[in-house]
């Protein structure tokens, strides 16, 4: 969406436009009347795009919310495998990157090229740090057998948090290899440990009672059926994965911006590309602001993690 020069553009001396910079006309696309119109259109374009993004993430958030209501104990159990320290660190990193991003926008507006490049680099650094930490988390998940399909080993899970956990784990309740097979759907078996589809329906049908039931279930988190925990991790990877894809795209765009900024493209009156990319960056940040409490903080504060 960054304005670039195109051959054959027509320059209109639109009356009333009071931009008196000689280069303004080079920035203006031929199909706009003046820079202000172009500026508003581009900004509104990014906002519309963000509206579509909200709706897209919305589908995932809804699925998450629905199954969280249905399978609260599984959600609590799954959440306790996540590392809150790393999650908090990532929240901090991302919020901080939003600050560096607005500083970049500010530098562009005040036409400070060095500062702009610096802040953009800082933003990229923080974005990379976020992805790095995320990669560490995912690697740990993989090692612990928490990744559905790729590496799903409930029998090797180590439970964190409560000291009495190992005592509370009786053989019958420990997920076994046979459950794994079911969870993959290869050996469907109605008699497996856990809630049948009908029961889960009823739980969903009565959220008021479900709340209380979930509360009781929290006392004994090991009872959550493996396939429900898998659902949690599936949604966890979908949501953080989609978010990470947005981060990677954002890093690519900010990288391009940095390169262009170092050539002075945005510090001579045309600061809008920085502003627009900033909008995107903040949106990705906002998604994480919601993801963090929803995914990490379900089962209370449990610094154990991996």
């Amino acid at each position: 969406m960054a304005p670039t020069l195109e051959p054959g553009h027509i320059v209109e001396h639109a009356h009333g436009a009071d931009h008196d910079h000689a280069h303004d006309h080079d920035l203006l696309h031929h199909y706009f009347d003046d820079l202000e119109q172009q500026r508003e259109a581009h900004s509104l374009g990014m906002w519309s795009f963000l509206v579509t993004e909200v709706m897209m993430f919305g589908g995932l958030f809804f699925s998450y919310t629905l199954y969280r209501g249905m399978f609260h104990s599984a959600w609590v159990e799954g959440s306790r495998f996540l590392n809150i320290v790393l999650g908090t660190a990532n929240t901090f990193v991302l919020l901080f990157s939003s600050l560096t991003m607005v500083m970049a926008v500010h530098s562009a507006q005040t036409r400070k090229r060095q500062a702009l490049v610096g802040w953009l680099l800082a933003t990229m650094l923080l974005g990379t740090a976020f992805l790095g930490i995320k990669a560490v988390e995912w690697t740990n998940d993989y090692k612990e057998g928490l990744v559905p399909v790729l590496s799903w080993h409930p029998e090797e899970w180590h439970f964190h948090g409560e000291p009495e956990s190992s005592a509370a784990m009786s053989p019958g309740e420990t997920p076994t290899a046979s459950h794994v097979g079911e969870a993959h759907g290869q050996a469907p078996d109605e008699t497996r440990s856990g809630v049948s589809a009908d029961v889960s329906r009823e739980m969903a049908a009565q959220p008021g009672q479900g709340e209380v039931g979930q509360n009781e279930a929290q006392q004994d988190v090991r009872h959550a059926p493996v396939n429900q925990v898998m659902l949690y991790f599936f949604l966890y990877f979908c949501m953080t994965g989609l978010h990470a894809i947005h981060m990677i795209i954002g890093l690519g765009v900010v990288g391009t911006l940095t390169w262009m900024a170092s050539k002075g493209r945005f510090t001579s009156g045309n600061d809008q590309p920085v502003e627009i990319v900033g909008l995107y960056w903040h949106f990705v940040d906002i998604v994480w602001v919601f993801l963090f409490p929803l995914l990490y903080l379900i089962g209370g504060f449990h610094p154990g993690g991996h």
Binding site: L99, L279, I286
Partner: peptide, 11 residues
């Protein structure tokens, strides 16, 4: 948090 970001960071 989101409102703060939208109102001020996203201006």
């Amino acid at each position: 948090k989101a409102v703060l970001i939208v109102l001020y960071f996203m201006e």
